[in-house]
Amino acid sequence: MKIAVCIKQVPDSWAEKKMVNGALDRENVDAVLNDLDEYAVEEALRIVEAHGGNEDGAAHSVTVISMGPARATDAVRKALSMGANGAILITDPALASADALLTSKVLAQVINSEGFDLVICGTESTDARMSVVPAMIAARLGWAQLTFAGSVDVEPAQSKVSITRVSEAGVDSMSANFPAVISVIEKINEPRYPSFKGIMAAKKKSIESRDLAAIGISAQSAWSQVIDSQLRPPRAAGVKVSDDGSGGEKLVNFLVERKLI
């Protein structure tokens, strides 16, 4: 079984983010592995571990694929230290302002050229929050789309994968034959912390860097443009009362004042 996990380096969730020239300023914030992608890495590792593992010479492997600047190596390295076997990092100045359509095109192209059985993604990146890339990859590859998985079951001998999809529409049991694109929700597992051994091993693992020419895609202008962006005025400071028994009544008075009841 060959599993690919798509990961993204994003600004730290707690960092203050700013727009510069119509795009997120990524230079001046701490960058981390998108925490929703950690669940995808973990799930890929659990799948291979349940079927004999991904040690050197084993039948299974987990490859991390990421599109990003050179410094995204740090995020890739983290996934490797969790236990992934190797990584492909697509880096090209022409991808600096790539939107979801171009990102999915690049990822799909790389996935297609490597012959994976399963692709696992997080449900969204914590920066752009679009939640469309897994569906876009499935559409581009024409593969089964098994997204928003709260559990994943793989039968490698049958080349079959089943999930429970957890979404606003309820819980669906879904299955497909390989190859399939999966996205996992954050309830699916508890991602492991890289062990010291894992961190040391990751230093020796190869991160293959490719540019657009190497994967055979030409740069393309974005399908949508930011016209402008403004800082919103901060929320006006509200009223804060200590409950001395009258807090509930004061709360109701506030609702009445605001015509909310």
């Binding site: 974005a222 399908w223 949508s224 930011v226 402008d228 403004q230 919103r232």
Partner: peptide, 11 residues
């Protein structure tokens, strides 16, 4: 919630 953005699809 800190920033408002206006954008347009061109394709």
């Amino acid at each position: 919630g800190s920033t408002t953005v206006h954008s347009k699809v061109s394709n």
